[in-house]
Design a binder for these strands. Sequence first.
DNA 1: GTTCCGCATGAATCGATAG
DNA 2: ACTATCGATTCATGCGGAA
Lengths: 290, 290
Amino acid sequence: MKYLNEILLGDCGEVLKSLPNDSVDLIFTSPPYADQRRQTYGGVSPNEYVAWFLPKAEQFLRVLKPTGTFVLNVKERVVDGERHTYVIELILAMRKQGWSWTEEFMWHKKNSYPGKWPNRFRDNWERLIQFNKSKKFNMYQEAVMVPVGDWAKERLAKLSETDRMRDESKVGSGFGKNISNWLGRDMVYPTNVIHMATECSNRNHSAVFPVDLPKWFIRLFTEPGDTVLDPFIGSGTTAVAAIQLARNYVGIDLNPEYVEISRARVAETQLGLPYIAEEREDYQVVENIA
Amino acid sequence: MKYLNEILLGDCGEVLKSLPNDSVDLIFTSPPYADQRRQTYGGVSPNEYVAWFLPKAEQFLRVLKPTGTFVLNVKERVVDGERHTYVIELILAMRKQGWSWTEEFMWHKKNSYPGKWPNRFRDNWERLIQFNKSKKFNMYQEAVMVPVGDWAKERLAKLSETDRMRDESKVGSGFGKNISNWLGRDMVYPTNVIHMATECSNRNHSAVFPVDLPKWFIRLFTEPGDTVLDPFIGSGTTAVAAIQLARNYVGIDLNPEYVEISRARVAETQLGLPYIAEEREDYQVVENIA
DNA sequence: GTTCCGCATGAATCGATAG
DNA sequence: ACTATCGATTCATGCGGAA
């Protein structure tokens, strides 16, 4: 069965059974949040969410390479005035399944929908939960470095005496630092908080993340030529990100309409919009046909 | 037993037994994270954390008014390359105890300690978990409104202590003279993401949150004259915040040294720095003795 | 007064090595 | 094998004195 660089139709738990073991480097996905997209997806009730997700997660675990990573974008919905517990229950259940819960990134959505409720504020963040199959996974931190903050210009211009030696933290935490090591540094590593605006232009899909979000994780956890899987591909954003970064993609969706939309976006992307050529060195520059 | 506006010495689970039912409007606290302040506190092993916390949470539930709120500042540590599950297990256990898990605010710490590891980035956020006793709790959203525009958020976050003494004089509103100019203009409600730097100036306490953090929640969930409890008072920051906002406080700590430090800070705050008199209408203006 | 500039300091985690 | 200890890694901000 051909699966590489395809958008496949079906339930990912079933479709994935045709994929070989240890064949995927990164799984990045934003599954339908419980009951929140009832019109578009079947709608999963919060209480059944964990049971619904686990058999799929088992397939994810099987197809993922031992060095691979699974990044799950999810947020618990409010049920009866409370945050529902399906997300944290899922973490516990997936650990029993064999996953390691390595980290939880926070996506700070800079432009969430306006709204007012008597008992809560606007929800401005989502979880990006990192699971791994083993403690030894691939991570390419240099690929996502960011410019150092403005503080550095002033701060590093003149170093004090203590800045030139190793200065131990006073509280006994074991921290210590030698600030003179930072001289000449203009790029630094990011943190586990990611600031990105949500995608406003709705592409017939009710929950859109910006293409920069999967791109960030694709750069961080894969190299060109690796394979990225999104088992709830929706409007195809993860596949677009993979193509633009010269990775292979596999997309799956239950909904034929989304499969169509994704295939169209993929084709459009592959046809060689000029910006692709800049990011993919192996691409020829092609006239923009649009 | 007198407990109002006192810093009490002892294990909060025991000390709280002397407090009456339904007597506290807000509990705001940052307990020792598992095993992470070993030098200063005893250190609780991650695996025992939930069992250690639950009897205390039971007392919190008893002393909290039905309209009150419990805000818990906590973050899971990494154990053997994984985020430990004690925090999410605690949420599940506290719900069984009778708490509602209303919301989870995100504290984005802009100045986390530097560090680099092969498999993770610096941790730049902590949880502020909101628990309630009933669905009908008090919330004063207008008290934490912010001027529209990003510059204002930056301005608020960057106010130094001296700036605050100078600027923060409007009773209850929390906005300084400069910023109050914008009161008549477009004010918006904040979101559930809070941007504040950690307190670096050493107060002989290894884990200091900025006084603005408890202040934000005190404004949001209480009115002047209400009672704020911090059962792990540490260096007394929550009590200082309560005093500056004309609320009653109750602080508890197991460590005699911290009790001393907290009492000293409380006394210093009460001695009537001028800005206090402006914020507490029930205070006489007292000469600054410093 | 106000701005500027020097300077100290904070909830970490990993891998190697030793016991 | 299992645990304990130790060295190595690297940002951003607020305070306080000087200009």
